[in-house]
Design a protein around this nucleic acid. Structure first.
Lengths: 119, 119
DNA sequence: ATAACGCCTGGAGTTAACTCCAAGTCAAGG
DNA sequence: CCTTGACTTGGAGTTAACTCCAGGCGTTAT
């Protein structure tokens, strides 16, 4: 799969995809004989995963570590699991926070709606 | 209330509080005769609101606009309500996204847990 | 065959949101 | 009286995560 298609498919710019590769987030992308990126199935999956995690606010740094562990093979399974678990906890907390903020927004909106004193 | 107490209470650094004031997020903070910040009740409420919204990822730019409208008085009630509603929609969508990501994390963790093939 | 297109590279620039710093004022303690 | 400590200011520096650019190459379209 060409970079333009990947870009299209996941809503990431060409620059972003190249940037991700540079910093080690997608280290396995191969090239055609004349040097053009050709994303394999695994690369695509990885991009999807990265996209998802990034949009949840997971830092790139963490993803780099994770990907590096994956590249190191099966001996790193435990370390990887730990990373994911840690991020799971953080994410769950974040969702709770956001939910509270959403409630606050709803409350404020309802006040405006009912034309009560603004404060 | 002194700036140090506000900082303590909301976990925002002194620099951040001063920065917020500079950019117009907390325009109403008064000073003691010798120039030291003295946060009033309204300022405190505003800091709390800002803190909450910021931790939900609401851009500072939006908050500046909102606060400016509040300062302009009752004629801006509708505009303010619109801002909040818009942000509410964005936030709800974000929560949904995060929830999906959380599910994906859980799925991945469960795979590691069951020692199924890594991939 | 020449122009346009899509891709490549390394490196510089941008943006949001802080965060730090130097230099200065003031009030209280030893 | 001198130091310590909390506060002030304007401005510069930092960080994460892109985003843009100039210069170049190889294939496709006219």
């Amino acid at each position: 799969m060409k970079i333009a298609e990947v870009s299209e498919k996941y809503g990431l710019s060409l620059d972003t995809l190249r940037y991700y590769e540079r910093i080690g987030l997608i280290p396995t992308v191969t090239r055609t004989p004349n040097g053009i990126r050709d994303y394999g199935e695994m690369d695509i999956k990885r991009v999807e995963f990265i996209k998802c995690m990034r949009s949840a606010g997971l830092p790139i740094e963490v993803l780099i570590d994770y990907v590096a562990l994956v590249e190191q093979g099966d001996s790193t399974v435990d370390a990887r699991k730990e990373i994911l678990k840690e991020q799971r906890v953080l994410l769950a907390a974040k969702i709770e926070d956001l939910q509270k903020t959403l409630n606050l927004l709803d409350y404020k909106i309802s006040i405006y709606e009912n034309k009560l004193p603004t404060k």
